[in-house]
Design a protein around this nucleic acid. Structure first.
Lengths: 303, 303
DNA sequence: GATCTCGTTTAGGCTGGCTAAATGTTCGAG
DNA sequence: CTCGAACATTTAGCCAGCCTAAACGAGATC
């Protein structure tokens, strides 16, 4: 019968594509991973991996086994959750990671409320964004992760991860208050000749901005880049350009910035909470998820 | 995360009740089982077992974990089955066990048909009956088991086992042809004053006989006992008493035996094929199950 | 073609799981 | 009531399996 730690390695390999990355994620040497996967293939009686240049790709059998491995691993998570649910005490340590905007808005209030209701609960929080967060979640370095998905980008579909939607927020065009804009629904083309202030090149928001401008039929002229919304908004406020920012980042903006929802193309991002598949019923996680939903419901997002 | 071999030990313990029996079933020493279960409890963070005299019983947490363990182990079986289904070759060894009546009627024809269609398939067959068969199936000593369930007795409900019904056969009253019986539906009370020929005391059929007579309001006068239907029917044929036998055992009976279905109480047994949960889709098992269903359908059971 | 980055192989050390034997309890039989 | 059988547990010690490290081979990149 398959050993669960070997199945885990196979799953990580499927997600990461190289043995080196898998080894790092699991705190092992590539050698150990390679050996364990060899054993797994011998047990399976079929090759699960084939070399493709210096990478490995899964065979059909490998993909089938990964699929079942997800199931089995989720079952083990669920077992753990069920045991903790029995003892019914919300306690222990929950390690949360979130993207900065959430970490400074939703999350602190939720943690505070959860700890007030359950004094034995300990929570840690760190910044993590995008796929690095997903990887850390699956590797067990964190237990709960706040993620966003932009509507123009591919969604997260990882069978080892369960997503619970929290809130959907529009992306707002941030423009200097002095800038005259047409009334009514704002089309992105109205900003085509403005200088743009953009996030750094590898961020999802940057990709969304470029896709959106592409859909609107122009290529934005980039004047400044920063990943810090405070900086971006300060640049807008100084009249140096326009930008696109999520609603959550605009809670306190000065009066010399105009914020307008973009109607064409439709731009929004969905904020969700992610946990390992099967672990959502762990009492401490369930409490935190409920508090996050509660906080998200309280948000008054000015549309 | 829980190790699968520990979960397997817990499940076996849940089914068997003692560490000694679990150890024997898994070819280990009691010491090894005890140690592994200690580790499992430490990992679970909760006691899973409590001593009850010289036995162990599961706590609530233990039962919950066993339930999830069944799920996980079935998932692993399913993974194996899916991989074998991919290679699509019906081959390898399938170890079958059956109760004697099935082993001499249904099973040989099914094995012959399966091997004719799939020359690489090897099948072994042995006699096993009742709970010993279930235990052997779960322990992996056999892969497929034919079982019967009498309608008056508790059913088999083992979450680690999947049952596929094959056929339902009536229990027939076997009486000397010289015995005059009322026409129409036969009520068991019509036989209350006859001497009875019964199976041995620990068999399911014996228990069914006694429950049925109890429902009919009398206690059977036992004249002879045997577990071999040939012997039982010879005794009936000699006019020494009456008995209750399943239809499958009556395929060739001499003319001096009268066979009548019992209408009150209704008596029948269901014959099913049992495999480990998750393994039913293994190609070789799937073929054999299909052949068994086919053979069962061919049976002309004279009612 | 030099070099960097993979994956694999081999050798060797260490942890974890096993057996064996001793210990402590409980239950039943004489 | 005592003795013995059946059970679980503990301890000590052995061995296999898994890991690391180092050397090697094969692609990709400049």
């Amino acid at each position: 019968m398959f050993e669960v730690h070997r199945l885990r390695l196979l799953r990580e390999l499927a997600a990461r594509g190289t043995i080196a990355a898998t080894a790092k994620a699991c705190s092992l040497t590539p050698s150990a991973v390679s050996q364990q996967l060899s054993v797994l293939q011998r047990e399976a009686g079929t090759p699960l991996l084939v070399r493709d240049g210096r990478h490995l790709i899964l065979t059909e059998a490998g993909r089938v086994l990964v699929e079942h491995a997800e199931q089995v691993l989720a079952g083990l998570e669920a077992a753990k959750a069920a045991l903790e649910a029995l003892s019914d005490s919300v306690s222990g340590v929950v390690r949360i990671a979130a993207f900065p905007t959430a970490a400074s808005s939703l999350v602190p209030a939720a943690i505070a409320a959860a700890q007030a209701a359950h004094p034995d609960l300990t929570v840690s929080l760190e910044d993590r964004e995008g796929s690095a967060g997903i990887a850390a979640l699956r590797a067990g370095q964190i237990d709960l992760l706040l993620v966003y998905e932009y509507n123009l980008l591919p969604e997260i579909t990882d069978p080892g991860i369960e997503l619970t939607p929290l809130v959907t927020e529009s992306l707002l065009a941030a423009v200097p208050a002095t800038l005259r804009l047409p009334r009514g629904a704002l089309r992105l083309t109205a900003l085509r000749d403005q200088p743009w202030i953009a996030p750094l090149s590898d961020s999802d928001l940057r990709a969304t901005l470029e896709r959106a401008c592409g859909l609107a039929g122009f290529s934005p002229r980039l004047a400044y880049t920063s990943d810090d919304y405070t900086v971006i908004l300060a640049l807008v406020s100084a009249g140096l350009g326009v930008s696109l920012v999520p609603q959550l980042a605009t809670e306190r903006t000065s009066a010399d910035i105009g914020l307008r929802a973009v109607a064409d193309p439709t731009l929004y991002r969905a904020v969700s909470v992610a946990v390992r598949a099967g672990s959502a019923r762990t009492p401490s996680l369930a409490v935190l998820i409920a508090e996050l939903r509660d906080q998200a419901g309280r948000l008054r997002l000015p549309a």
